[in-house]
Design a protein around this nucleic acid. Structure first.
Lengths: 310, 310
DNA sequence: TCGGCTCCTAACCGAATGGTTATCTCGACC
DNA sequence: GGTCGAGATAACCATTCGGTTAGGAGCCGA
């Protein structure tokens, strides 16, 4: 029985699927399946099994999840305790969606680290579905994105999701469902803002093209036939320069709220607390709204993390 | 950071020595030292270091011990929870001293398992010093032996430690300190009853001969020049048959109390509770006092365990 | 200063862990 | 009754873990 196996088990039971847990951990599905198998063998109980949609815990499984969850949490505590005793920089692990990880959040975190000393920030990307589980299992300290149920969520800013295309773009009769959509990886996350937009407009799979970054999606829209969702104030420059134009339609643009979510005040780390306080300051607002708050060096962007912390 | 490493660390900090922890775990000393080294490297803190006699925790170490201890405990809980949910036999792990493990305790446990169904008992041997740590760290459920501080201890029976030798034995002028002492492994445990006896009579090391079992020590006493400590009612037969005779001296024989110690009522296992209740019954008393309650088959005596459970 | 005790390190080894890709099995669903 | 999706299994590989024995470093007491 290893801590890794317990962590896997907890995540599987939380997310209700081996696949989802594998994705959240950034490993292949058999890796998770095997860790689970090892734990099952060790404890001599299936713990959790498929049952139609989702999975179901056995009686023993139910008892083990809560214990395992505590253990995983304590493991985190131990590491934090040591760091703290030794005056080392605190570690703040932030998860966010792909879209936000490219502009708003890095700018925010950069301003934060510049202001608050002694905190080391790292940024991870996850789907909306995973974020809550990651925070609850202490695999991340703070989630920035849509409102997450079960966590202490707080609205921090309002932003507008708009649709852009090249200025001379003409939509044919079928409207948005018939044109091509250029999206960043967030588009594949059904619960994300962009995902919601796609399903609301019933955009068929074969019309969606996924790019690694939002910028890449804009470029494609500027060059070809199609539209790209974008955070309004981030494309303001391109629109002004006439490279792109906003496309209006039903429910577009849509005004959205950005939330910061973490565990309750008692259970979250001090660093998480400090970020939450910082995020309400004018400095933070300014950083998030500045369109050119381009990626400042490699500090926040070792490619794009798809995987989570160990 | 593995659970094994944490267990090692907790045990070292409790016993105040790498050697002692190694002995308690039944492994070599470098094994413990290395586990500790791995944990130190992982947490990037020495955690614990030598300081004259004993070892001293670093600030970080102090915080980690308590967390690690909780984790080790939870790991035990998890296994217990699964067993219990599945109606499997509960596991009761008993530690005792070498002397007691040869006669009284096996007889007691045999009577216990016969009476209480659904409990699987295993017996381990440890030094007095280790017993408390083993119970507190949940590596054992119950300790039977001398009174242990910090645990819920309860006196269960009175027994008499006596000294036997061959009937025609003549002690020379220097008395007991000058004769040879035949002891079982408990004699090497300074805090045990026999160990206390040896140091009280200032018996020099080279006069002490250690045998694997108490019986072997008696035989040696019956055959050669020397004395052997024995539990009075266990040698009654030999004395009656004239094979051995009791040797009297200052503080000998000595009347002692046998204690059963475990965690408090809230924290101990149900099986431990049941043993504690059983041990007060006449059936238990009878089993412990019967001299011929010889080792019943291999069930309780796969050689003698020197090592503990994983 | 010389043993001796205790802890640490080195070198090595087998087994378990954690990961991959490829394939099988099984239930849900047209 | 195919087919598809999701989980389990197989086969394989690199790394780590946990263990050993052998030997080195510090610190005490005689």
């Amino acid at each position: 029985m290893t801590l890794a196996q317990l962590k896997v088990f907890v995540l599987v039971s939380r997310l209700g699927s081996v696949r989802a847990a594998a994705a959240a951990l950034g490993v292949s599905e058999p890796a998770v399946s095997q860790a689970l198998a090892a734990l099952r063998q060790h404890l001599d109980d299936p713990l959790i099994s498929r049952s139609g949609a989702g999975m179901e815990l056995t009686p023993a499984g139910r008892r083990v999840v809560s214990i395992a969850s505590q253990m995983v949490n304590l493991a985190v505590d131990a590491e934090v305790a040591v760091r703290q005793s030794n005056g080392a920089a605190e570690l703040l692990r932030v998860v966010t969606t792909s879209t936000l990880s490219q502009s708003i959040v890095p700018a925010l975190l950069q301003a934060f680290t510049a202001r608050a000393g002694g905190i080391e920030v790292s940024l991870g990307v996850a789907t909306t579905e995973e974020m809550a589980a990651l925070v609850e299992e202490r695999l991340a300290d703070v989630a920035i994105g849509p409102r997450l149920a079960g966590l202490e969520a707080e609205a921090v800013m309002r932003y507008r999701l708009t649709l852009v295309g090249r200025p001379d773009l003409r939509l044919n009769g079928n409207g948005l469902a018939a044109t091509r959509w250029f999206v960043d990886p967030t588009g594949t996350d059904r619960l994300s803002d962009v995902g919601v937009l796609l399903s609301k407009h019933r955009v068929p799979e074969d019309r969606i093209m996924v790019f690694a970054t939002e910028q890449a999606a804009w470029s494609a829209a500027a060059a070809g036939d199609g539209v790209a969702p974008a955070i309004d104030h981030m494309v303001a420059g391109e629109v002004d320069r006439g490279v792109l134009t906003r496309v209006n339609a039903t429910d577009i643009p849509v005004d959205l709220l950005l939330y910061v979510s973490s565990l309750g005040a008692q259970r979250r780390s001090r660093a998480a607390d400090r970020l939450r306080r910082f995020i309400r300051t004018p400095v933070a607002m300014q950083a998030m709204y500045r369109p050119d708050s381009g990626v400042p060096a490699a500090k926040f962007r070792p490619p794009v993390y798809v995987t989570l912390w160990s």
